[in-house]
Amino acid sequence: MTAREDDDPLSTRHIDVPLGARLRSIRENHGLTQAEMARRLGISTNQWGRHESGANRLPAARLWQFCEAMKIEVEAMFRDQPFAPAKPASAFVPLPEPQRPYSAHDPSQRHDPADPAPLESSGVLVQRIGAVARQLPEARQRTALAVLRALKLEDEN
């Protein structure tokens, strides 16, 4: 670690390195090679090696995919780690509802906001998620898409 990384308040090396060590330990306990794990996650062996060494940050979606493949809870990845977890906020503050286009000609968009069923059955929920995702930076859009794809695969199984 360089002196600059030691002084950088935004550095996450104190999280990335022990998290990477836990990834490696879990993978090895399941009898998988780095190449096999990388193939399961759809990334290169080199990229997976950089995650395990802590050289590259592990995206949240990839952590979720790893945990799904290993049949463990995401929370378990952070238990007993040498870094302190963030303390929960004293009160939950809901985010405002995202604005979505409304069409008077689309009957699927006319519904009681308190009833989520019409949203789920009509595809409006997908439209709302898409509208919010398009407001994200491109890298975050890819992460959101990966999570949605993984959720779809989970529903199909």
Results as ranks from 00 to 15, higher is better:
P98E: 12
A35W: 04
S103N: 10
A69D: 02
A146G: 11
A60I: 01
R24W: 06
V17Q: 06
V124T: 08
S103A: 14
E75K: 02
I15W: 03
I15Y: 04
Q109W: 11
M37I: 07
A146L: 15
P94F: 04
A144M: 14
N157W: 13
T12C: 13
Y102R: 10
E68H: 02
A61M: 01
I15E: 07
S44K: 04
Q34L: 10
I15H: 01
E73L: 02
A150C: 13
P85L: 03
A61F: 03
R24D: 09
P98H: 12
P116D: 10
E5L: 09
R39H: 13
P59V: 01
E5D: 09
G42I: 07
S103I: 05
L19E: 05
H30Q: 09
A21D: 15
D6I: 15
L58K: 03
I72C: 00
E52L: 01
A60Y: 05
R142T: 14
E52T: 02
P118M: 14
G49E: 05
P96V: 04
G49C: 03
N29D: 15
D106A: 11
E52H: 02
D115Q: 11
G42H: 07
A133F: 03
V93C: 06
E120L: 15
A144N: 04
Q99T: 10
I26N: 05
A146V: 07
T45P: 06
Y102A: 08
L119Y: 08
E97D: 15
P118G: 13
S121Y: 15
L41R: 04
M1K: 06
S121A: 15
F83A: 01
K152N: 15
W64C: 01
L10K: 09
R24I: 08
W48G: 02
V147Q: 06
V126C: 08
Q109G: 06
G130K: 05
Q34T: 13
F78C: 01
A150D: 12
V74D: 00
